[in-house]
Simulated assay, not measured.
Amino acid sequence: MAELISTEVTDGILTITLNRPNALNSLNAAACFELSDIFDRFDQDDSQRVAIITGAGDKAFCAGHDLIEDFDEPMPETGWAGLSHRSGLNKPLIAAVNGFALGGGWELAMLCDVVVADPRASFGLPEPKVGFAALGGGARLLPHRVPYHIAMGLLLTGRSMPAEDAARLGLVNEVSAPGKVLETARQWADDMLSCAPLALQMSKQLALASADPASLREPLQKMEVELTNELIKSKDAWEGMAAFAEKRAPVWTGK
């Protein structure tokens, strides 16, 4: 059985690869717990200074939550992908977005500090189209990354945008040459490795406290959990997942 997540450490850089290419690297609950353990070890290992997160294959970075497999299983305490409710991880995280970053996949990228993208990559939060919402950090974070109306236009339509548009809006640091996103991410990592480790960690610690203060983060994370539990019980969420699996248009009831 293939690993859900594969890892490799080279010269202080931890490369984390979401390894479900046949499912567009979507994450099930088991993969999220596995990621949580990986981030725990990364946080505690002083020899691992920077992490790069990417997807296997050339089609998808991550297509979000697996809608077919154990959709209603609980997440780890650290939240979606082992990151969305995590605090204290002050080492740099780089997303190397090699293809689709949809739903929880884009949320995972948003939870990183630097985002580089292949020109073929695209970004979107299509959860409402399947009866759900971007409660893995997307609805909480996006309005602080771009102007409110841009954020709401994306959150309320499920539309996607290409890498170049995401870069223009400041949601992507760099668009790589085609097929070179991992190499570009490693160049960013090398620049980080040339800096003092504690200086980077303290810079991130202060930046996170400024952009996402604990006084707001904790109640919003609690709200995410509450809303997730409520939506999972809704008829529309189960109708959305059934329609997705059956490749048909959903029939919404508002319940």
Rank of each mutant, 00 (worst) to 15 (best):
residue 61 F to W: 05
residue 172 V to Q: 13
residue 65 H to A: 06
residue 152 M to V: 03
residue 116 V to I: 01
residue 149 H to R: 10
residue 220 L to D: 07
residue 226 E to F: 14
residue 202 M to Y: 09
residue 58 D to P: 00
residue 70 D to P: 06
residue 180 K to T: 12
residue 159 R to F: 04
residue 47 S to A: 15
residue 8 E to S: 15
residue 209 A to P: 05
residue 233 K to F: 01
residue 203 S to M: 11
residue 120 R to T: 14
residue 156 L to W: 00
residue 54 T to F: 04
residue 211 A to Q: 08
residue 216 L to C: 10
residue 160 S to D: 07
residue 242 A to G: 00
residue 53 I to P: 06
residue 176 S to H: 13
residue 121 A to Y: 03
residue 204 K to C: 02
residue 242 A to C: 11
residue 214 A to Y: 00
residue 170 G to A: 09
residue 98 N to S: 08
residue 171 L to D: 10
residue 126 P to D: 01
residue 119 P to H: 07
residue 116 V to W: 10
residue 21 P to L: 09
residue 82 G to D: 09
residue 180 K to Q: 15
residue 236 D to H: 11
residue 82 G to L: 05
residue 234 S to K: 12
residue 247 K to N: 11
residue 166 A to W: 02
residue 128 P to L: 06
residue 76 P to W: 01
residue 150 I to K: 05
residue 239 E to Y: 08
residue 144 H to R: 14
residue 134 A to C: 10
residue 66 D to K: 07
residue 217 R to D: 12
residue 28 N to G: 03
residue 192 M to F: 15
residue 206 L to P: 06
residue 46 D to H: 01
residue 101 A to G: 05
residue 164 E to L: 06
residue 104 G to L: 02
residue 92 P to A: 04
residue 94 I to T: 09
residue 83 L to H: 04
residue 90 N to P: 07
residue 253 T to S: 15
residue 117 A to I: 07
residue 220 L to I: 09
residue 2 A to H: 05
residue 185 A to G: 04
residue 135 L to P: 08
residue 144 H to P: 05
residue 116 V to P: 10
residue 84 S to N: 07
residue 179 G to T: 13
residue 119 P to Y: 12
residue 219 P to R: 03
residue 200 L to K: 06
residue 77 E to F: 00
residue 71 F to H: 11
residue 99 G to L: 05
residue 18 L to Y: 13
residue 182 L to A: 12
residue 32 C to I: 02
residue 120 R to Y: 02
residue 9 V to A: 13
residue 122 S to M: 12
residue 215 S to V: 14
residue 43 D to Q: 14
residue 224 E to I: 11
residue 92 P to W: 09
residue 229 N to V: 06
residue 43 D to R: 10
residue 76 P to N: 14
residue 86 R to G: 08
residue 98 N to Y: 00
residue 100 F to Q: 02
residue 122 S to Q: 15
residue 145 R to E: 09
